[in-house]
Amino acid sequence: MKSHISTDMGEIIIDNEVIAKYAGSAAVECFGIVGMASVNMKEGLVKLLKKESIRHGVNVYVEDNSIFIDLHIIVVYGVSIAAVAENLIENVKYKVEEFTGMSVMKINVLVEGVRILD
Score class of each variant (00 low, 15 high):
A37T: 07
V76S: 10
V104A: 05
H72R: 06
K51Q: 15
L45T: 15
V60M: 07
L117N: 12
N40W: 08
K47I: 06
V62E: 15
S25T: 03
D70G: 04
R55P: 05
N16G: 06
K47C: 01
E17K: 10
V46Y: 07
V109N: 03
A23P: 04
M105Y: 05
L88S: 03
S6F: 12
K21H: 03
I89Y: 04
E97I: 09
L88N: 03
K50S: 15
L110A: 11
G10C: 11
V84T: 14
V114K: 05
I81M: 11
E63M: 08
T100N: 08
K2N: 13
V34W: 03
I33V: 15
V79Q: 11
S53N: 15
I19S: 02
F31H: 14
R55W: 09
Y22D: 02
N40F: 08
E63R: 11
T7G: 13
I14P: 07
F31G: 10
H56A: 09
M1G: 15
A85I: 02
V92I: 06
D118Q: 11
S38W: 13
S66F: 11
E52R: 10
I13C: 12
V79Y: 12
F31L: 10
D118I: 12
N91M: 05
M41T: 04
N65R: 13
I67W: 00
T100K: 03
N91C: 10
I89V: 15
L49H: 12
V34K: 12
A23H: 00
G57F: 00
K93D: 08
G101D: 04
G10R: 07
I107H: 00
V46I: 14
N87C: 09
E90P: 01
Y77M: 09
N108W: 08
V114W: 08
V96G: 05
L71M: 09
V46D: 09
L110N: 15
G78C: 05
S3K: 01
V18E: 07
I107P: 02
M36N: 10
V104E: 05
N65W: 06
I81R: 07
S25E: 06
G44C: 10
L88F: 01
Y94V: 07
G35E: 05
S66E: 15
V62M: 10
Y77S: 07
V75I: 15
K42L: 14
L117R: 13
